[in-house]
Design a protein around this nucleic acid. Structure first.
Lengths: 232, 232
DNA sequence: ATTAAAGTGTGAAGCTCTTCACATCTTTGT
DNA sequence: ACAAAGATGTGAAGAGCTTCACACTTTAAT
């Protein structure tokens, strides 16, 4: 295994880029879009990182994805009359993002069956990813949610080292908790338990997973392809 | 408001039916497909009801959808090499189901952009539906899960009566609990609380919702279109 | 109509996770 | 290098659900 374990994308990125309306320079801390806004564009991330999350009525945050280079984000509702964003997109790292008007994509899809094909494949993969993630959250309690999140992070940001897999993304307990629907304290206690048992270790906010199979066994992971088991 | 509140489908059902490979007479209690099996077909329900659910390692069941006439079910993964079912489909009511080979649909989609269009719309609606449902389950605890489920049921099986909305589908506490990831007892206690407060009443296993807005307020429902807020 | 089976209702015990409170450790800016 | 801010670690109290146990009610079957 080499550098990143992130699976490659099948969508013809260049083709999508040609449809772009404009590119945006993104600034850390700003929102690319927020829940409730009118969803008229899709975004293709050229560089930087974006976190997709849902803010609950009482202010808690449920994080769903972290998107990086070449990922598509925005409300995945094509052919829907005046949709609104259900989620918010927070810029985690400065970068550049291409905005593509939805009606342009819709028109293009009608004429270009290869693009339609790629898009459908992407949607169906994305659907499966979301579904398996939520399943882990709901079926296996908070522990399951955390283990699932860590496993997904190894697939998205994992770098193989000789003592395990380093998740090359600094995360606070709070941020990790947001992905699991857990409190900071619970996340901390669960992480410490994993440290004590030698399953993981943490240095400078980055987790190294020494015993991935333990995490997988605990949540009854079926070893689905990594493309369905990632955090993007 | 008239009879059923179920929204109409946009997919060209007749077009899909023409692609059908065969039709299956379904028998209550049998499985149309089960997790782990090879997913080669999509199914179009002609009559009867089918419940889609995930069985956890320890035997608990998380129910996700109940599909009825004209609903499509099966693993929504087009253009994916040798996918396996992540979910199981249990027949709730005898009926008839058309099976359509995936490669036939895939081939047809390439040539028929109207079908591709309808399919993408369906996928994106279905995605949104699933996502909002899980969000309710994760963000608002077990009470939120139950309230959300009841609201969705009124959109799918609700019949307007003069004292509220009758959910025209008999459900045991256990079955309702399976949709929420809750125990039978918890479901029972929450339902009784709602009965005491006059929000709902139950006769012969069928719930009548007298005060829908109360349920919506409790989970911070944004009054999204009913098509995204159903149990199908 | 009677009996068995299935479903409902409810207390008590206990597990899981959150919340609050506060101490300690780490990072960042000047 | 040092202060301030941010992040981590941990006990204690308690909310929220589950589990077990069992009584009671409704439904289905002969």
């Amino acid at each position: 295994m080499v550098q990143s374990m992130k699976p490659t994308h099948s969508i013809e990125i260049k083709e999508l880029l040609q449809l772009a309306d404009r590119t945006i320079k993104t600034v850390k801390g700003q929102y690319l879009f927020q829940e409730g806004e009118h969803a008229e564009e899709l975004y293709l991330i050229i560089s930087g990182k974006v976190q997709i999350s849902k803010i609950s009525k009482d202010g808690r945050e449920l994080a769903l994805r972290i998107c990086g280079d070449n990922d598509i984000c925005g409300e995945l509702t094509l052919f829907t009359h005046s949709p609104k964003y259900l989620l918010s997109a927070l810029i985690l790292e400065n970068g550049e993002i291409a905005a593509i008007k939805k009606d342009v994509i819709e028109r293009e899809i009608f004429q270009n069956s290869a693009l339609a094909f790629e898009f459908m494949k992407w949607m169906s993969d994305h659907f499966r990813k979301t579904q398996t993630k939520f399943r882990d959250l709901v079926l296996n309690g908070k522990k399951g949610a955390l283990y699932s999140t860590i496993i997904r992070m190894t697939n998205s940001y994992g770098i193989k080292k000789n003592d395990g897999i380093l998740i090359d993304l600094p995360l606070t307990n709070q941020e990790l908790g947001n992905f699991c629907g857990t409190s900071r304290e619970s996340t901390n206690r669960l992480l410490n338990e994993l440290k004590r048992d030698g399953i993981i270790s943490i240095k400078k906010g980055k987790i190294t997973v020494h015993h991935l199979q333990f995490l997988k066994d605990e949540i009854g992971c079926e070893n689905c392809p990594a493309i369905y088991c990632s955090i993007e």
